[in-house]
């Protein structure tokens, strides 16, 4: 399996390098967190909002921009296209689950994004020398684990919406609704601390926080230990749910596809 991944990664690297300019432009379109930063930055000029000073907003939004870039997922557009155009059938002829090809191309994309993000991060640190994160060995380790888990939840949930294309033609629309909700309740529009208490409570049980905000919260130094543990448990829970739903949809979807459309 490792060899297969090595080869798949090599190919998607070559393919993406053909489109390096396009990837850079795609990255620039994901600047919504920075726009929100500008909004909250100016609103908090008069004093902290819900405990967030200007400096806190900068720290929060720079890191959530990073999380969003590093967990970026587009697999639904490929699945949707390939199912409707019959290219998916070709993939089904291979003795390898097609999900591995998509995972490989997403991993490649992360390396390319990282290459852009690291210099930008250093640049940001120079401009905002006052921003501060709670960086210990534990928080950084947990941040990295949570980052991978966020990506997996985002990837698998979008993959599941993609598989709906076996049955319906509106799968991408459903995914858009899901995505808009995740911007709202995932902490992109505003840090979840700024929401009313009851919405905060709901958000802790929904998957969206674990797609964006939670890794940032881990290094923000705002989580009490129980909150941290509960959050990690909820994240693991949603990860397991994603895997289970994916496996179920995949089996059912293939059956449906081979009955009607392949």
């Amino acid at each position: 399996m490792l060899i297969k991944y090595a080869v798949l990664l090599r190919r998607s690297f070559s393919a993406m390098l053909e489109y390096r300019a396009m990837i850079f432009i795609w990255m620039l379109t994901n600047v919504m967190p920075l726009v929100m930063l500008a909004v909250w930055f100016s609103l908090s000029e008069g004093g902290p909002i819900a405990g967030y000073s200007q400096n806190d907003f900068v720290a929060y939004y720079l890191l959530i921009t990073f999380v969003r870039q590093m967990t970026n997922v587009w697999v639904i557009w490929e699945i949707d296209y390939e199912i409707r155009h019959g290219d998916f059938s070709i993939k089904l002829l291979h003795p390898l689950n097609p999900i591995h090809e998509y995972i490989a191309s997403h991993i490649t994309d992360k390396f390319l994004r990282l290459a852009v993000m690291i210099p930008l991060g250093i640049f940001a640190w120079i401009i905002f020398p006052t921003i501060h994160y709670d960086l210990t060995f534990t928080t950084v380790t947990l941040f990295l684990i949570a980052l991978v888990a966020s990506w997996l939840i985002r990837f698998l949930s979008q993959y599941c919406f993609g598989l709906l294309a076996f049955w319906i033609s509106a799968s991408t629309t459903l995914n858009e609704i899901w995505f808009a909700t995740s911007l709202m309740l995932g902490g992109i529009v505003a840090p979840l601390d700024l929401f009313p208490a009851n919405i905060q409570l709901i958000a802790k049980y929904l998957p969206f926080r674990y797609m964006f905000a939670f890794p940032v919260e881990i290094v923000s130094g705002r989580l009490a230990q129980t909150e941290l543990i509960n959050g990690l448990a909820a994240m693991l829970g949603w990860l397991i749910v994603s895997v289970v739903v994916y496996r179920w949809l995949w089996r059912r979807g293939l059956k449906h596809f081979s009955a009607f459309g392949a």
């Binding site: 080869v7 090599r10 190919r11 070559s14 291979h94």
Partner: peptide
């Protein structure tokens, strides 16, 4: 299964890249 109307080769890469991937997959 070869379908004259469909293709499995990656459009942007030389055919050799697809061959190497198939070698690994198979």
């Amino acid at each position: 299964l070869v379908m004259g109307q469909k293709q499995q080769l990656n459009w942007d890469l030389p055919a050799m890249d697809t061959f190497l991937v198939n070698a690994a997959i198979y």
